[in-house]
Amino acid sequence: MVTVSEARAADEQPSGEIDRTPTPRSAIGAVAFAAIASAMLALASIDGAVLAFAGTIVLAVGVWLARLRIVSAGSLLLVGGIVAAGVTGATAEPLLVAAVCVVLAWDLAETAIELGDRIGRDASTARFEAVHAATSLAVGVGSAAVGYGLYVATAGGQSTTAVVLLLFGAVIVISAFR
């Protein structure tokens, strides 16, 4: 009889419920990148920085609540900050850094939520997250380098048409391949 009651007691212990909240590393990384983006914009334009700061908070709330839609809304606010900064005459360099940071913030936030939901906060994900963040960062830095090169090359100003052609061509090609 003793065995029976023991088995019952063991089963009543809390079982292995998966903690599905976002993984902490990527979540913190996401908020950090959003904050860097806001700081960069603050160097260039107050209007942009205000929007971007709001975006950072929304994004942080979204990560906290594990709600992708809120994260996306925050990222759009951050993009709005970049646009506002650009329109109010910010220089190109901080905008470039901010843009890379915004994409990274969104990417990491999405990863944190998705990994937490599918794999769980407690599973071993550190290396995976590091590889993922590094790849995204490399893509961002690479694109920024290419973009900045183009920017400097066309700094003369007479070939806006050329840049527009290049960009539209790229957008169309990418859309076609998706």
Binding site: I82, G86, A92, V100, G140, Y148, T154
Partner: peptide, 10 residues
Amino acid sequence: VPSLVLVGVI
């Protein structure tokens, strides 16, 4: 605004 076009490159 050329800098926004540049952001588009990223």
